[in-house]
Design a protein around this nucleic acid. Structure first.
Lengths: 190, 190
DNA sequence: GGCGTCATGTAACACGTTACATGATTAG
DNA sequence: CTAATCATGTAACGTGTTACATGACGCC
């Protein structure tokens, strides 16, 4: 399981409250890991109990106070040990692929609109990733001066992961084009 | 949830026992959906209770008897209704991407071997898919004569899904090459 | 005699999703 | 005054994983 570890990475990049983490999981971290706020609060509580993270109450003006979490030594050690532990390459789970094979036993052309919807969603995500790349990973190499080496690793690796997301979305768009061409061959009316 | 529906598709392609289904989920269906035998037995039981599948005892020689399941009318209807129900495009979950971002807070070069292992696994899968494609989707269009139109749809759509798997593995291999090049930039010794 | 395959299951637990709940502040 | 955002949580349920269990047959 990696939600704990995804949270640790995110907190190392910048301490945050549960709420802020949840929003990050809708954005950058969400490129390759999703989680709802309920899950995050539950896991965060366990991590606090286990001493992986420290909580600090931060009073705010005009807003509810928040509990800001940062990574404790135990958490850093847990992350490090996980990083050194080999994991199995996962296999994908694609509802859409199940549908495509299932369409052979129903009307194949009925799936066309669904596939088009998915292709559009992937186009949107691609555009979003490309905008993020242009915003965060072009121009001057280091956004802050000083302490360059470690910052560079963080940025470079974040960028490498983002390039993976971009490659994934491009592949999906091309494949869905292919699927649409295949479905179209079964003609309107069949 | 789509395990039920993946089972329905698989049983429509060919009736099978729980055990045989479990093995299919290690192979062709497993390209895009995984499930262990425990899950399959549990779901199969529920599907039988709900009248989605019919079970038939098949005595065998030199082997334990098996329960062969086939799709009932209710199951066909359930699949059809699911096919017409739009689903949300899922987001991916990549432990490896978490590790890559996490490596910035540990020794980045320690990840190289892990990434190489994953790249090899994806190369193996790609080779496996390509072999399957050569075996099942080249040469004469229909493997059996007669009843062509529906058989063609089944084959064509299976092939389209397999092409997706191939595209996915190629993308992953390329991306992991990219990641390795990035990790290597942090040099041996830093 | 031991290991691998065929075949089916139970039980406990971990993880993920959905719905519900509360309460303050700010923008329209 | 209504809706959205910030902030944290509980409860119930569904799905997925791991471990354990049984038993027959065939191969070395």
């Amino acid at each position: 399981m990696a939600l704990e570890h995804a949270i640790l990475v995110s907190l190392l990049e910048k301490p945050a409250s549960g709420y802020e983490l949840a929003r990050r999981f809708d954005r950058s971290i969400g490129y390759f890991w999703t989680a709802t706020h309920q899950q995050i609060y539950r896991v965060l509580k366990r991590m606090e109990d286990d001493g992986w993270v420290d909580a600090r109450d931060v009073p705010q003006q005009g807003r509810p106070d928040k509990k800001e979490y940062s990574v404790a030594d135990l958490g850093r050690a847990a992350l490090s040990s996980w990083l050194h532990d080999p994991i199995e390459p996962e296999s994908v789970r694609h509802d859409l692929a199940v549908k495509i094979r299932g369409a052979a036993f129903d009307d194949p052309t009925a799936l066309i609109r669904e596939v088009e919807r998915h292709r559009q969603a992937h186009r949107d995500r691609l555009a979003h990733y490309l905008a993020g790349q242009a915003r965060d990973f072009t121009g001057p190499k280091a956004p802050t001066a000083g302490a360059q080496a470690p910052l560079d690793a963080e940025r470079e690796l974040q960028h490498a992961v983002l390039r993976g997301g971009i490659a994934y979305e491009r592949m999906m768009i091309d494949w869905l084009d292919d699927v649409l061409a295949t479905l179209a061959r079964f003609g309107p009316g069949r």
